[in-house]
């Protein structure tokens, strides 16, 4: 299969990559760029472990061809912290124990980040809807909901 050129910005860095056109975005992120924070749990877009931001909007990166992200800006979990300084959501996830095995956590954090970017004061129902597409088999979700709520309530504002 002939390779094609992909121009993509990931976490504020621009890349020129030659890839097979059938490569999924998740494969390019993980295999070409080594950004293994983004996981893959089903390959059918059902579990949300591969959630990333594409031009600020959440997508399941296992359901997007990398070439569809031509010229786009992609944000992954690796970009949430500023050096050693964690984002408010990351701190809140720690405080609430909003992860256990951690395999869904990257996708969950990306969905939560997009949710709060779009709606800084979500209701509890908004939060549940916002992470409806992300499966967590460990936590039962309530700690995750509490973590997002705490950030929305401004508990981490001074730490931002």
């Amino acid at each position: 299969m002939k390779k094609t050129l992909l121009n993509i910005t990931v976490n504020d860095e621009t890349f020129e990559l030659y890839i097979k056109p059938k490569k999924l975005l998740v494969e390019v992120l993980r295999d070409e760029l080594g950004l293994t924070g983004t996981k893959r749990g089903c390959n059918t877009g059902a579990c949300g472990a591969c959630t990333v931001l594409l031009n600020g909007v959440t997508v399941k990166s296992c359901s997007v061809l990398a070439v569809q992200a031509e010229g786009a800006e992609v944000t992954t979990v690796e970009h949430l912290a500023d050096g050693a300084k964690l984002s408010a959501l990351q701190l809140s996830f720690l405080d609430q124990g909003a992860y256990q095995c951690g395999f869904c956590t990257s996708g969950m954090l990306m969905s939560a980040t997009a949710l709060l970017n779009e709606e800084p004061k979500p209701t509890r129902e908004d939060i549940k809807e916002g992470i409806h597409g992300n499966i967590c088999r460990c936590t039962g979700y309530n700690s995750i909901i509490r973590a997002i709520e705490a950030v929305a309530e401004g508990k981490y504002r001074e730490k931002r």
């Binding site: 992954t76 979990v77 690796e78 964690l86 720690l94 992860y99």
Partner: peptide
């Protein structure tokens, strides 16, 4: 959790 930071940063 002592593995927490590793997990929330990917």
């Amino acid at each position: 959790n002592i593995d927490g930071i590793a997990k929330v940063t990917g």
